[in-house]
Deep mutational scan, measured.
Amino acid sequence: KELVLVLYDYQEKSPRELTVKKGDILTLLNSTNKDWWKIEVNGRQGFVPAAYLKKL
């Protein structure tokens, strides 16, 4: 499993997105899109802007 660090808080703006908090370490599911990465948070899957995340 690949992990990502959340660099900035992000509030979901659609049902396909997820809310994340700065400092969270989460599972990366897909990073093929350069702008939006798919991650998992508490069993939910969704997208967060790639600029808000850093691969560990």
Rank of each mutant, 00 (worst) to 15 (best):
Lys1Pro: 15
Lys1His: 15
Glu2Ile: 12
Glu2Ser: 13
Glu2Gln: 12
Leu3Ala: 07
Leu3Glu: 08
Leu3Asp: 04
Leu3Pro: 04
Val4Lys: 00
Val4Ala: 08
Val4Pro: 00
Val4Arg: 01
Val6Asp: 00
Val6Ala: 07
Val6His: 00
Leu7Ile: 09
Leu7Gly: 01
Tyr8Cys: 10
Tyr8Val: 12
Asp9Gly: 05
Asp9Cys: 04
Asp9Gln: 03
Asp9Val: 02
Gln11Lys: 14
Gln11Trp: 15
Gln11Pro: 05
Gln11Phe: 14
Glu12Gln: 14
Glu12Pro: 14
Lys13Asp: 07
Lys13Cys: 11
Ser14Gln: 10
Ser14Trp: 08
Ser14Pro: 10
Ser14Cys: 08
Pro15Cys: 09
Arg16Tyr: 14
Arg16Phe: 15
Glu17Leu: 05
Glu17Thr: 08
Glu17Tyr: 05
Glu17Gln: 13
Leu18Glu: 02
Leu18Pro: 01
Leu18Lys: 03
Leu18Trp: 03
Thr19Tyr: 05
Thr19Phe: 06
Thr19Cys: 05
Thr19Leu: 04
Val20Cys: 06
Lys21Ala: 10
Lys21Met: 10
Lys22Phe: 05
Gly23Val: 00
Gly23Gln: 02
Gly23Ala: 03
Gly23Asp: 06
Gly23Thr: 01
Asp24Tyr: 06
Asp24Cys: 08
Asp24Leu: 09
Ile25Pro: 00
Ile25His: 04
Ile25Gly: 00
Ile25Cys: 05
Leu26Met: 07
Leu26Trp: 14
Leu26Cys: 12
Thr27His: 15
Leu28His: 01
Leu28Ser: 02
Leu29Val: 15
Leu29Gly: 02
Leu29Cys: 07
Leu29Pro: 00
Leu29Glu: 03
Leu29Asp: 02
Asn30Trp: 09
Asn30Pro: 03
Ser31His: 13
Ser31Thr: 10
Ser31Asn: 08
Ser31Gly: 12
Ser31Val: 07
Thr32His: 13
Asn33Glu: 09
Asn33Arg: 09
Asn33Asp: 15
Asn33Tyr: 08
Lys34Phe: 09
Asp35Tyr: 15
Asp35Asn: 13
Asp35Gln: 13
Asp35His: 14
Asp35Ile: 14
Trp36Ile: 04
Trp36Lys: 03
Trp37Thr: 01
Trp37Pro: 01
Lys38Phe: 15
Lys38Thr: 09
Ile39Phe: 02
Ile39Asn: 01
Ile39Glu: 00
Ile39Ala: 11
Glu40Phe: 06
Glu40Pro: 00
Glu40His: 05
Glu40Gly: 09
Glu40Gln: 09
Val41Met: 13
Val41Tyr: 15
Val41Ile: 12
Val41Thr: 11
Asn42Asp: 15
Asn42Glu: 11
Gly43Gln: 07
Gly43Ser: 08
Arg44Lys: 13
Arg44Trp: 06
Arg44Ile: 11
Arg44Gly: 04
Gln45Phe: 09
Gln45Thr: 14
Gln45Arg: 12
Gly46Met: 09
Gly46Trp: 05
Gly46Ala: 06
Val48Gln: 00
Pro49Asp: 02
Pro49Asn: 03
Pro49Tyr: 02
Pro49Gly: 02
Ala50Pro: 05
Ala51Trp: 10
Ala51Gln: 12
Tyr52Met: 10
Tyr52Arg: 05
Tyr52Asp: 02
Tyr52Pro: 01
Tyr52Phe: 11
Leu53Phe: 04
Leu53Asp: 00
Lys54Ser: 11
Lys54His: 11
Lys54Asp: 05
Lys55Phe: 08
Lys55Gln: 08
Lys55Leu: 15
